[in-house]
Design a protein around this nucleic acid. Structure first.
Length: 598
RNA sequence: GGCCCGGUAGUACAGAUGGUUAGUACGCCAGCCUGUCACGCUGGAGGUCGAGGGUUCGAGUCCCUUCCGGGUCGCCA
């Protein structure tokens, strides 16, 4: 039978009981993590978010009644235990436990709440993810999730302190806003007052934070929830958190980048005791693409992509020749000592893998223990292989993996993905390594085949590089942006830009994007208006808070750092949201439900 | 929308080529046990093999359809 707490006070958390409390009486409260009933002697391990302590029920000290009560306790019961802290001696010390040098000799036991057998064991890892999500409150009892959520909270505190110390003001911006046609799909909220009209949940506070700069807030930040109705991934949830910041009277990327470096250094130092470089590597977008096939390269390992265009320009191998004659390219990566690690079967699998990145296939050329193995040796002369070997500086044992495509971007992206896959497979980096990078000099525009025009790569308020301003209309593809992404271990942790604050530049930008005055007014109306009344030079950045926590907690699954995440189909296993609503609610909103949908 | 992987007691998993009563560990239930620490020992209960259809004398296993979960490409200014 469960008992009342009746004003009893906890004196310590379970994980806080140390030898300094020896001889003192303490009151612990928590969940029964394990029970070891030896008959006349019972050990209970009591758990709360701080850790685990062992309580012992011993008839040498406690009554027979108390021992019998303790024998009825099951796992996950919530209990309070009053007892004296005793030093464990000899073999009774458990060196694997933080509190292994002490135990609490129980004098009183209250069963505060009984518990059914849980659907999965709290002490183990490995239960099916869907099951853990259905009983998320039980999953949160697990040590890993407790740790991740605590780290998340600590990082949040560090961020608030740092930005506050640097003169930033925290301002909240609306959740109910206006849908913007650009970018990701919006989550919509129907208006009751104006039937047929909808609010949109923010994809980011971008517009509001720029308006705050116009409003003279000077430096703003917000830990902001954002919503995007797009498909989920291992590192993508439909609602997620951004550390959003913006500052006025700056026009160099460095101003925001250095502030961000300071913040990240502080976080890594305090959370992981890791000293990040005070200045991160900077690499242009075009170099990232060419060398790593990604705009968010993982620099924990090498294996840079190399260009074989000149080396194979006279090749007889049709695949290479076709790519080159179509204006394409032939690129390669070299896996050191990989020739004998990659079987024919595995190479075929890798070929299938690169095909998902829109390239035709994968060629390989390795110098294995049993001699040369090459997927295209029949098509080329010995001398060509020698030239490739020389160009790629291949040693005995190495294997090169080669992709040819008429589109250079497809080729490098495929190799970039392959590079990461091989690094993971052969453990070319170790956990605890952190490679930080700024990707800079993004193109301002990107040509959209779908729309048949240039579109903004970041957004249409991104400031062009000053030196590229003259080419915005004459040669848009060469114009670079004052935009920057911060990348850690191949994860895009954040990004931002300097914003346009000059009316002429903004006008040119819209012209380059092919917007008419009507389109500008319709899409960006109030926002463009605001810029007419005195806009300070400004710029900012948003950090993907969840992803930052992922890096700091060594997980690749965003669900591990969010208390109540959604599943891949964007539903919640626990609450079963989204769900049908009452007819009455729909009627109020004047939303008609078509009979026989689907 | 495409591709890949998975679904077998409460949980995690094993079940070559189709063949007796579908196993193992943990958990659960009952009993024993005074120094355990993943306590141990004895016994017990527990299964729509995701669902439906098919092939077969016989299907967890083979075929088809479908549902569910995960990953990924597209998508995410």
């Amino acid at each position: 039978m469960a008992e009342l707490l009746n004003g009893q006070k906890r004196t310590l958390m379970c994980g806080e009981v140390t030898t300094e409390y020896v001889g003192k009486t303490v009151t612990l409260m928590g969940w029964v993590h394990r029970r070891r009933d030896l008959g006349g002697l019972i050990f209970l391990q009591l758990r709360d978010r701080s850790g685990i302590s062992q309580a012992v029920f011993d008839t040498d000290v406690c009554s027979r009644e108390l021992l019998e009560k303790a024998s009825t306790i099951k796992l996950e019961y919530v209990v309070s235990i009053v007892g004296k802290v005793r030093r464990r001696i000899g073999n009774n010390v458990n060196p694997n436990m933080k509190t292994g040098e002490i135990e609490v000799v129980a004098e009183e036991l209250k069963i505060l709440s009984e518990a059914d057998t849980t659907p999965f064991s709290i002490g183990d890892d490995g239960a099916n993810e869907a099951l853990r999500l259905k009983y998320r409150y039980l999953d949160i009892r697990r040590e890993q999730l407790q740790h991740n959520l605590i780290v998340r909270s600590k990082i949040c505190q560090i961020i608030r302190n740092y930005l506050s110390d640097n003169g930033f003001i925290e301002v909240e911006t609306p959740m109910l806003g206006k849908s913007t046609p650009e970018g990701a799909r919006d989550y919509l909220v129907p208006s009751r007052i104006r039937p047929g009209s909808f609010y949109a949940l923010p994809q980011s506070p971008q517009i509001y934070k720029q308006l705050l700069m116009i409003g003279g807030m000077d430096k703003y930040y917000q830990i902001a929830r954002c919503f995007r109705d797009e498909d989920l991934r291992a590192n993508r949830q439909p609602e997620f958190t951004q550390v959003d910041l913006e500052m006025s009277f700056v026009d160099r990327e460095e101003d925001v980048m250095q502030l961000t470096e300071g913040l990240l250094c502080k976080i890594f130092k305090e959370i992981r005791n890791v000293d990040l470089p005070t200045r991160f590597t900077r690499m242009s977008w075009i170099d990232c693409m060419n060398l790593y096939g990604s705009d968010k390269p993982d620099l924990r390992f090498g294996m840079q992509i190399q260009n074989l265009d000149d080396t194979v320009k006279n090749t007889k191998f049709a695949v290479f020749q076709n790519a080159l004659s179509a204006g394409g390219t032939v690129r390669a990566i070299v896996l050191k000592n990989g020739a004998d690690k990659l079987s024919r079967k595995e190479l075929d699998k890798l070929a299938e893998f690169v095909k998902t990145y829109k390239v035709g296939g994968l060629a390989w050329y390795g110098l294995g223990a049993d001699g040369v193995k090459c997927s295209f040796s029949k098509a080329v002369d010995e001398s060509e292989l020698e030239e490739i070997k020389t160009k790629l500086e291949m040693q005995h044992g190495d294997i090169s993996l080669i992709v040819a495509d008429k589109n250079w971007k497809n080729a490098v992206v495929a190799l970039g993905a392959l590079r990461c896959r091989l690094a993971a497979k052969f453990e070319l980096y170790k956990s605890g390594d952190f490679a930080c990078l700024w990707v800079v000099d993004f193109p301002l525009f990107e040509y959209s085949e779908e729309e048949g025009r240039f579109v903004a790569m970041h957004h249409p308020f991104t400031h062009p590089k000053n030196e590229d301003l003259p080419f915005m209309l004459s040669d848009p593809s060469r114009v670079r942006a004052k935009a920057y992404d911060v990348v850690i271990n191949g994860d895009e942790i954040g990004g931002g830009s300097m914003r346009i604050y000059n009316r002429e530049v903004q006008k040119t930008m819209f012209e380059a994007l092919g917007f008419t005055d009507e389109q500008i007014a319709e899409r960006f109306g109030f926002f463009v208006d605001a810029f007419k009344y005195g806009t300070p030079p400004h710029g900012g950045l948003a950090l993907g808070f969840d992803r930052l926590v992922m890096v700091l907690t060594d997980t690749t699954n965003i669900k591990d750092v969010i208390a109540f995440p959604k599943m891949q189909n964007a539903s919640c296993m626990m609450t079963e949201a989204p769900a049908q609503v009452d007819e009455k609610q729909l009627t109020e909103l004047r939303i008609k439900c078509e009979a026989g949908d689907d």
